[in-house]
Design a protein around this nucleic acid. Structure first.
Length: 272
DNA sequence: CTGAGATCCTGTCTGC
DNA sequence: TGCAGACAGGATCTCA
């Protein structure tokens, strides 16, 4: 479900709730996620205080006051974080993890189990984190950077910008939208980028992500943030799941599969 | 090394 | 209504 703007939105809410809070108790209801939850490591975090909450790519990071303890949360496609009062908690199907705090409970729910929870001591060596590419909203992410890495890449430009080792946080929706704004065909080979296209793509990615963060992300089906609220970037979508191109209003939006993912584009606007 | 395709899992929607 | 099949904001793994 969640790409960078959704994870950023959720992270901000989690940060507000959990910073400087002490975990009283942990409870794993179902350890079977994309990777199994390491229940024993998790238990070591009981009676420990969360020092800071941040985001790296699509991962939410909770750092603790104790030396080098970091809880990593990935939401996969359908991960949802929510909070409830202790008395009001009613177990829902697919609740996997509960963190008990003084006056509330943190709940991690994930229908499809593509999400995961990890506890690590060394973030820079953690296998899911260490090979991640740069943040798209950082200064380092510019036209030159993207062009440089795209040389010799015969995969499609869409797969390229969704590759978390190149740049993090971009998933199917925002890749689709950014390519539309940049007038680039999603199945164009990455190596066919030139500097002006690369600059345009980078600036559109930044523009879309920033705007989507302001609007709390995009809700297609069931995304809600940690307060149960949807995202409002949905109404800003130009091409994702649309019938017709917003510019060439009589032209039907094409939908092709690129590495198994729906890829929407206008064949007049977007050329290889 | 690359790239294509399968795979993890559940729920919902479409078409026969 | 029933049921098969497609599809969904992700990402890794296997195999050629």
């Amino acid at each position: 479900m969640p790409e960078l703007p959704e994870v950023e939105t959720i992270m901000s809410l989690v940060k507000r709730r959990l910073t400087n809070k002490k975990i009283i108790k942990t409870k794993v209801l179902n350890a079977k996620l994309r990777w199994p939850i390491e229940t024993r490591k998790l238990r070591n975090l009981e009676n420990e205080t969360i020092k800071s909450v941040s985001r790296r790519g699509k991962y939410i990071l909770l750092e603790f006051e104790i030396e080098k303890a970091i809880l990593i949360i990935h939401l996969g496609m359908t991960g949802v974080i929510s909070f409830t009062n202790q008395e009001e908690y009613k177990r829902h199907k697919h609740d996997h993890l509960l963190l008990f705090f003084d006056s509330f409970i943190f709940i991690f729910n994930d229908v499809r189990k593509f999400g995961s929870i990890h506890i690590t001591q060394d973030l820079s060596e953690m296998f899911l984190i260490k090979n991640l590419g740069i943040e798209p909203l950082s200064k380092k992410f510019d036209g030159k950077y993207l062009l440089q890495l795209s040389k010799n890449k015969s995969c499609s430009i869409k797969e390229f910008i969704m590759n978390q080792k190149i740049v993090v946080g971009i998933g199917n929706i925002y890749a689709t939208e950014a390519l539309f704004l940049s007038k680039i065909h999603p199945s164009m080979q990455a190596k066919r980028l030139n500097l002006s296209k690369s600059k345009s793509l980078v600036s559109n990615i930044k523009f879309i992500l920033q705007k989507a963060i302001k609007l709390g992300g995009t809700t297609i089906k069931d995304y809600v943030n940690a307060e149960g609220k949807p995202g409002y970037f949905t109404q800003e979508l130009n091409i994702y799941q649309k019938k017709n191109c917003p510019i060439h209003k009589n032209n039907a939006v094409r939908n092709i599969k690129i590495s198994g993912r729906s890829s929407f584009f206008c064949d007049i606007c977007q050329k290889k």
